[in-house]
Simulated assay, not measured.
Amino acid sequence: MSGERFSRTYMRERWFGVLEKAVADDPRGIQGVADRLGDGCGRSALSLILSGAYPAQPVKVSRRVLEVYDCYRCPYLGHDVRADFCAKIQRGPVPTWDPAALDLRRACQRCEQRPKHQEMKS
């Protein structure tokens, strides 16, 4: 079993690619990513997930990976922003007191990059 890589359906999901890139980019590897993700996303769990040996669907880990590492190119601001920034703009109060923030919110509502799970219900 050593060296054997399993294939799980979650390994084809977007968050899994984000996780692999995060581990590759972090100088501390899996441990660095685990520390950044926090509780419930320990080094052992991440190792099992990355090898495909995790026995269940890693829902909590997938959610945390997207919250912490998923970035989008913001066409309004012109640089990468984290998905939680988009969520904050969408879910926060309408900034009627700040014209620039209001323009950002309007642009965010029409943005093609906005994650589907963040869409507002009318």
Score class of each variant (00 low, 15 high):
Glu67Lys: 10
His117Arg: 15
Pro115Tyr: 09
Ala45Gly: 02
Glu4Lys: 05
Gln90Pro: 00
Asp103His: 06
Val68Asn: 07
Gly52Arg: 08
Ser122His: 03
Asp26Cys: 07
Lys121Asn: 04
Gln90Val: 15
Ser47Leu: 13
Lys60Ile: 00
Met11Pro: 00
Pro115Val: 03
Arg63Lys: 14
Gly32Trp: 01
Leu104Pro: 06
Pro115Thr: 07
Gln90Ser: 13
Leu19Glu: 03
Val65Gln: 03
Cys74Val: 05
Arg14Cys: 01
Pro55Met: 13
Arg36Asp: 06
Val18Glu: 10
Lys60Cys: 00
Arg82Trp: 00
Ser7Asp: 06
Ala34Phe: 04
Arg110Thr: 12
Ala22Asp: 06
Asp35Asn: 05
Gly42Glu: 08
Gly38Asp: 05
Ala53Gly: 12
Arg73His: 07
Asp39Trp: 04
Gly32Gln: 02
Leu104Ala: 07
Ser122Ile: 04
Ser7Pro: 00
Gly3Ser: 10
Ser51Gly: 09
Glu112Ala: 14
Ala53Cys: 03
Arg8Glu: 12
Ser62Tyr: 10
Glu119Cys: 02
Leu104Glu: 13
Leu50Phe: 12
Asp98Leu: 10
Ala34Tyr: 05
Asp80Cys: 01
Gly78Asp: 05
Gly52Tyr: 10
Val33Thr: 09
Leu77Met: 04
Ile49Trp: 09
His79Cys: 02
Arg114Ile: 04
Arg28Phe: 14
Asp26Ser: 10
His79Tyr: 11
Lys121Arg: 12
Asp103Gln: 15
Arg36Ser: 10
Arg36Pro: 04
Asp80Glu: 14
Ile89Asp: 02
Ala56Leu: 12
Gly29Ile: 05
Tyr69Gly: 04
Asp98Ile: 08
Pro115Arg: 14
Gly29Cys: 02
Ala87His: 06
Met1Cys: 06
Val59Gly: 04
Leu48Asn: 05
Ala87Arg: 15
Ser44Pro: 00
